[in-house]
Each structure stands twice: as structure tokens, then as C-alpha cells.
Design a protein around this nucleic acid. Structure first.
Lengths: 154, 154
DNA sequence: CAGTATCCAACCTGATACTG
DNA sequence: CAGTATCAGGTTGGATACTG
């Protein structure tokens, strides 16, 4: 899902003072979000953060409904991004361990807020969803509609 | 030498009173993660959190490279989940406002940690990716390989 | 055990065209 | 302006087979 066109808009030499990080940084940060804001990434990171070192199959079992394909793919990406360390023990049968790197651990900690949010508010979201469904069925009353406004704005 | 890890996967259901809610909740929370751990969700929430109320097109411009389709779709989902409030002003031409609800605001705050992480470590990730690429090309030396281990483990 | 490779169906995404 | 409809392409995921 990475088809990002990086427009290199000419940086005006009217570069103001030292102000905030440039817009280029913005793009990099955005890119990071695109990489880590992923369901499997979060779930895998969480399991590794909680259990420490895990083997491929065990990790897959813990995550639950992930396919071997996605597990492999996501782990490879996490490894290439320096978030997960993959260790191969040259034995038969194969034995491969996965564990978080310092960087990966720091990300899993950053995700904590989101996990806590999910735990705290999942009921409210479920309720909102029901309300939305209910409101969508009846004829009148769609969603929020502002009172007639004489100001056409545009 | 490698410490033989004693996996306690055989742990009986005698759930120790450590913490964690029931396993059913786990599934619900997981579901929530699946819904919010999304690139567009994060980006849209961020823009709304930063700018307050925004109109469709303006929001799309701020997010940048999102397609109209995904913008619509993601907004609908956010609306149905009670994170975003959509207000239609019945004028011509149409005028639709989007803004965060309290719930949406709380989620955007939960995401802060991830944004901060991205800002702080994006360079390290980029470096890791380069290193990984470099290490993948050469003949020998794949990634981390543990020393020969006489204990076949399984 | 820990993958890789392949086929195929289903879905997600983006770009384009059209409408009220 | 704020969408919806449609089509083309890539990604996801399951199932299966094969490897070291």
C-alpha cells in the first residue's frame, strides 16, 4: 500500500527562522505512520513485548488469526525496520526466535496509549456503532444536520 | 550456550489474579485495534485534532495523498464509531463539516505517543532499513544467527 | 519447525467520470 | 462542494505443496 509520490516542492529560500522541523520531516514521519499503523504490526509487537522471546509458530498462535504468510511478511518488515531481532539457531528442526529490539520496545510502549484507549472505550464505540446503525435505517433523520443556514458560505 | 527457556504454555486456566480482564474482552479490544490501527485513521484524526472543524475537501488536502474514496470511507467509519461528528449544512453548494467527538479526541491523544515515537526515531528506522538492505545483498551473513547449539531443543 | 512458492478468491486502493 | 459509481491493479489470506 505504499504508492507514495514524494513531491519535492522547491523550498523557498525565504526560509523563515529556525521554526519547527521542515516539511520534509513531516513526510518522513508520515511514512513511519504508514508503516507502523498496522493491525498486524501492533498485535505482533504487543505479543513480543509481553512474552519476550517467541518462536515463529508460537507467535502465530498468540496473535491468533494471522496467516503464516502475513506473519512472515510482517515480521520481515519489522526486522528490516530494526524493530524486531530474528535469531536463527542452526539446528534440526529449525529454531527461530523473535524478540523486540530496543527500538521495537520503545514503539510497543508508544502503542500502550492506544491499547489502553481500546480497553477503556471499546464499549462506547460499540454503542456508537449501534446508534449509528439505528439512525441510518429510519426514513427521516439521517445524521447531524445543521439548521438551515442562509449563509451559503462559499 | 543458551538458556533453555521453560515455556509455560501449559499454564492451566487457573488464571492467576495478575491482571487483565477476561479473554472475551481481549477479543473486543483486538477488534478495536483492527479498526483504529490504520494509516488513514491516524492521519485524519490528527488533522481534525489539530485544526478542529474541517470540511471534506480541506481535510483531504491536509491529509495530502488520500483518495476521495478512502477519505469518504474512513470518515464514514469514524463517524459510525462515534469518533467523528459529521454536520451537513443544507445549502448550495453543499457544506459538510467534520470534527472530533470527545471520544475521537481521546483517541487522537492516545495516538500522540505513536506520533512522538515516529518523530523521535524515524531516522533510526531509516538507518536500520538501509543496514538490512546492505546485509541482505552480500554472500554470507544473513541476519542474526546463533552459535551452533548442540541442544536440538525439540 | 520454519519457512518459501504458487494458485486463486476476496478485498482494498486509487484514479477517473459523473451527479445533486 | 461533496460525494457516488465504476473500473483496473495491487494486496490479503487460505489452502496446498515443497524444502532444509
Amino acid at each position: 500500500m505504499e504508492s507514495r509520490q514524494v513531491e519535492r516542492q522547491a523550498a523557498p529560500d525565504t526560509e523563515p527562522s529556525v521554526r519547527q522541523p521542515g516539511p520534509e520531516i513531516e513526510l518522513l514521519v508520515r511514512d513511519m505512520i504508514g508503516r507502523v499503523a498496522d493491525k498486524w504490526t501492533m498485535l505482533i509487537l504487543e505479543e513480543l513485548a509481553e512474552h519476550g522471546t517467541l518462536r515463529f509458530t508460537r507467535l502465530g498462535d498468540l496473535v491468533g488469526d494471522i496467516s503464516q504468510k502475513m506473519l512472515t511478511k510482517t515480521l520481515r518488515q519489522l526486522e528490516s525496520d530494526g524493530l524486531v531481532l530474528r535469531t536463527v539457531h542452526p539446528v534440526i528442526p529449525p529454531h527461530v526466535d523473535y524478540r523486540l529490539t530496543e527500538l521495537g520496545l520503545s514503539l510497543s510502549e508508544a502503542f500502550c496509549g492506544v491499547w489502553e484507549w481500546a480497553e477503556k472505550y471499546h464499549a462506547q464505540v460499540a454503542q456508537a456503532r449501534q446508534d449509528f446503525q439505528s439512525a441510518a435505517l429510519p426514513r427521516s433523520s439521517g445524521r447531524a444536520v445543521a439548521a438551515q443556514d442562509t449563509d451559503s458560505g462559499t
